[in-house]
Amino acid sequence: MTKNSTSEPTNTKPEVQDLTSPDSSKKPTALEDDADIYTRRNVPVSEKQKWNELNRSQKWQYFKDYYLLKVIVTVIAVAFLCNVLWETFGPQIDTVYYGAVLYDDIDDEKLKELETAFSEYLNISTKKQRVTIDDNFNFTNNSTALSGEEKLTTYMYAEQVDTITVGAEEFAAMSYNGIFKDLDVILPEDLKSALSEYFVTGTVEDYADTEFIMGIDLSKCEKYQSLSPYVENPVIGIAYNSQHVENTIAYLRYLFDLTED
Results as ranks from 00 to 15, higher is better:
K3Q: 11
S5W: 01
S5C: 04
S5E: 09
T6W: 03
S7C: 03
E8H: 04
T12A: 07
P14V: 11
P14H: 07
Q17M: 06
L19H: 07
P22L: 12
P22A: 11
S25H: 08
K26C: 06
K26N: 10
P28D: 10
P28V: 14
L31M: 11
E32M: 03
D33Q: 06
D33H: 04
D36W: 03
I37K: 11
R41M: 12
V45Y: 00
K50R: 14
W51D: 01
N52T: 05
L54T: 07
S57M: 08
K59W: 05
K64R: 13
Y67D: 11
K70E: 15
V71I: 14
V71Q: 08
V71R: 05
I72N: 07
T74G: 13
V75S: 09
V78T: 14
V78S: 09
V84A: 13
L85P: 01
W86R: 10
W86Q: 12
T88L: 10
G90D: 09
P91R: 14
P91Q: 14
P91C: 00
V96C: 02
V101D: 03
V101W: 02
L102M: 09
D105R: 10
I106W: 06
D107E: 14
D108Q: 10
E109D: 11
K110T: 02
K112F: 06
L114D: 01
L114C: 01
S119G: 13
E120P: 00
L122Q: 04
N123H: 08
T126K: 14
T126F: 02
K127H: 07
Q129V: 01
R130K: 15
T132E: 12
I133G: 01
F137E: 09
F137P: 08
T140M: 07
N141M: 06
A145S: 14
A145T: 13
E150L: 10
E150Y: 04
T154A: 13
T154E: 14
Y155D: 08
Y155H: 06
M156W: 00
M156R: 13
Y157C: 01
D162H: 05
T165R: 04
T165G: 03
G167F: 02
A168V: 12
A168R: 15
E169D: 13
A172W: 00
M174H: 06
Y176H: 12
N177A: 15
N177I: 00
N177Y: 09
I179Q: 08
K181A: 12
D182C: 04
D182F: 05
V185C: 00
E189A: 15
D190S: 13
L191P: 04
A194P: 02
S196K: 14
E197C: 00
V200T: 12
T201H: 05
G202Y: 11
T203M: 12
D209N: 15
D209R: 09
F212Q: 07
M214L: 12
I216E: 08
D217F: 07
S219A: 12
K223S: 10
Y224K: 04
L227F: 04
S228N: 15
S228F: 11
I236T: 15
G237M: 07
I238W: 03
Y240W: 01
N241C: 04
Q243V: 08
T248G: 12
I249V: 15
L252N: 06
L255K: 04
D257E: 15
L258T: 09
L258G: 03
E260T: 12
D261I: 02
